[in-house]
Amino acid sequence: MNIINLEGTEDTPKILLDKDNGIFEISGRSLPEDSQGFYQPILDWIGEYENAANPKTEFVFKLEYFNTASSKLILDVLSALEEIEGTVIHWYYLEDDEDMQEAGEEFSELVDLEFEFKEY
């Protein structure tokens, strides 16, 4: 399966989706002008991955900031991952970033997925 590897920019997050090496990560800042357009390839990739998923999928969110338009798409990504058995979400937040911690907790209440919260 192809690898998605996008470098982060000042308004888009770094994305690494690599089935063979078991690395699934979205990190950095997410405030793209067109959030739907930015996240669609990621949603498509997850849809394809679902058909041949690894036994375990450790999906890392290590976001420094995301805007409200991105939050809907992040929920879409999480909803897509709900379909994949053995998925665990690793939600990272900066030590003093209560808002990011709370955002992760809210997402965990909206989807049926195992979340692990990690300070960094």
Binding site: S35, Q36, T68, A69, S71, K72, L73, L75, E106, E109, L110
Partner: peptide, 10 residues
């Protein structure tokens, strides 16, 4: 917030 994010399309 949760209600809007759940129920509105982008």
């Amino acid at each position: 917030y949760k209600e809007i994010i759940k129920n509105t399309s982008i």
